[in-house]
């Protein structure tokens, strides 16, 4: 009897600490998603946004709402990198360089 209560207490304790940890990573997920959206917008500002970046951010948001913060952060980071790549891709071509196969 005593042991059962103890065990229950332990499980409850374990669960609460997980929840506390989880609460902390919800904030982290929100931050990651915000950063991703900022990167996406920056790419869009130079007409360099990629097709799936917005979708990945939405997925991250849905995953976050379901409580899977680690996966949400992973998705958000992926979207953020896409935003960066799209921005750099556009910026590296700010000055038009005509391909060499066209002769003038």
């Amino acid at each position: 009897m005593k042991l059962a209560i103890k065990l229950l207490l332990i499980v409850v304790l374990g669960f609460t600490s997980t929840v506390i940890l989880a609460a902390a990573s919800d904030k982290a997920a929100q931050d990651a998603i915000a950063a991703a959206d900022q990167a996406r917008k920056k790419a869009a500002s130079v007409k360099g946004e990629w097709r799936d970046t917005g979708k990945i951010i939405k997925q991250a948001e849905q995953t976050r709402k379901k409580g899977d913060f680690d996966k949400a952060i992973k998705l958000a980071n992926k979207a953020e990198r896409q935003g960066k790549y799209g921005y750099e891709q556009a910026m590296s071509q700010q000055t038009l360089k005509m391909p060499s196969y066209l002769k003038y």
Binding site: L7, G14, T18, D70
Partner: peptide
């Protein structure tokens, strides 16, 4: 022992949430 057990329980619940 109680702390260790609770730690294990915590790990278990966390692990359940990781599909990786």
């Amino acid at each position: 022992r109680g702390l260790t057990l609770s730690g294990v329980a915590m790990l278990l619940t966390t692990a359940l949430m990781l599909p990786a």
